[in-house]
Amino acid sequence: MIKLFHVSKHYGTKSVLNDVTLLIEKGDMCCIVGPNGAGKSTLLKLMFCQEQSDRGQIMINNQNVTHMSQSAMPAVRQRMGFIFEDFRLMLRKTVLQNIVLALTIAGTPHKQGRQNVDRVLEALRLEHKKHDAASDLSAGEQQRVCIARAVVSDPLVLLADEPTGSLDSTATAEVFDLLRGMSARGTTVVLATQNQDVADRFPQHRVTLNQGRMTEQRNTCGI
């Protein structure tokens, strides 16, 4: 469960987020849509403690993460998955090593880890590439590795920043199936996109962001 109360964020004098209040239930799948520079990535980074908000409170699974100490951060992040806009892969490492790294950090037991790895490799069609260096992959493949790494440790919260930006339509559909499946199993998914077609796939809970303000919220999840 994710709660934001009157969250604002400035970069210098520029206001990037302005008084955002948002409630996302456990297992909910929320789509944040808005044009470039609307503040979608910034919003996700605040939830991920990658940036600090200037005002307001952020709660993740009943834990206040607004002003979290550096030492408390790893434990929170280990329970979250983040699909980065710019992938953030370790390019020298293989696909498999990148994915396993998330399990190593989370301390997932070996046997369960193996099963998870096999499952995500299959779901994202990366099996035949698993021993390739991440640097040798196409952008779409790199994005899929990034998704695999984010979901492999079964996170409670999944933050997806433009997760299908480099994917073809088949892969896009597969990724959304994967995300829906996770949401159905209880993972809270937050997805940010500037693509209206993508947003149209999530009519239940959709938030529109424009120049840092929430201009529209549509939530039919509870109904």
Partner: peptide, 15 residues
């Protein structure tokens, strides 16, 4: 670069 990624993935400083 790699160390920044590790921190984002939730690695502790000891790790």
């Amino acid at each position: 670069h790699d160390i920044d990624i590790l921190r984002l993935l939730g690695a502790t400083e000891a790790f």
